[in-house]
Design a protein around this nucleic acid. Structure first.
Lengths: 110, 110
DNA sequence: GACTACACATAGATTGGCTATGTATTGATC
DNA sequence: GATCAATACATAGCCAATCTATGTGTAGTC
């Protein structure tokens, strides 16, 4: 029974959005995406590999990302993910929906 | 494919919290809880019956609610749900977790 | 007597993210 | 040169939460 705020599902349904947002900075490999989200969220969000890679694959299938093999800064092979135009559009929609959702919930919980 | 913001799962995992919060006002029957959440959220959140009643049952099992049959204002039988002390405590915890979670996500999405 | 709103309830499906596991490489430490 | 931690990708199987769909029944209205 781990602390809820340790995990990516702090709010289920938001993982794709966090990944897409991270990739607006620069194309990144999976491990780097997870590190970035963890750091920016001040360790509040820990993206598990078992969530991360399936999500990256889902989003590639949907056309929101492309990827290619490359070299990580440490010299290891790594798959670099890049946001597509469709991915940017999707991100915009998800962020807008998210803001509407928390606004609605805030009204209920005051 | 309905509009996300039409449904209770605007943010999955928040339904129990919304119900608990609603019951801090006064004991209420299921239908009334759903109406209240819908109104306060300005129609942004629609609690489906197939989500509502299972949730009410889960929370009773966990001891967060009690219930008893009564009369609705329109003269029909209705099951009234009442928040327990454990339910109040749970609500506090869920609201705190929720605030932490959106804070963390906001940091990532700016 | 038909229809709408009210009211509760369950079955079955879907989704998302989890845990657990497996592979493999690099760099540091002993 | 062996061992270990960190880096890196990936899949299988599970679980929880909510959804859709469906069913029952009553009160009030036209």
């Amino acid at each position: 029974m781990s602390n809820k705020t340790d995990r990516a599902d702090v709010l289920p349904g938001t993982l794709d959005m966090l990944i897409l947002k991270t990739l607006t900075i620069t194309p990144m490999h999976g491990y780097g995406i997870a590190q970035h989200i963890q750091q920016v969220s001040r360790e509040a969000i820990q993206v598990e590999e078992g969530s991360l890679y399936p999500s990256l694959q889902r989003m590639q299938v949907k056309g929101w990302l492309t990827s290619e093999w490359g070299q990580s800064p440490t010299g290891r092979r790594a798959r670099y993910y890049r946001l597509t135009a469709a991915g940017k559009k999707q991100l915009g929609a998800e962020v807008a929906d998210f803001r509407k959702a928390i606004e609605a919930i805030q009204r209920v919980i005051q």
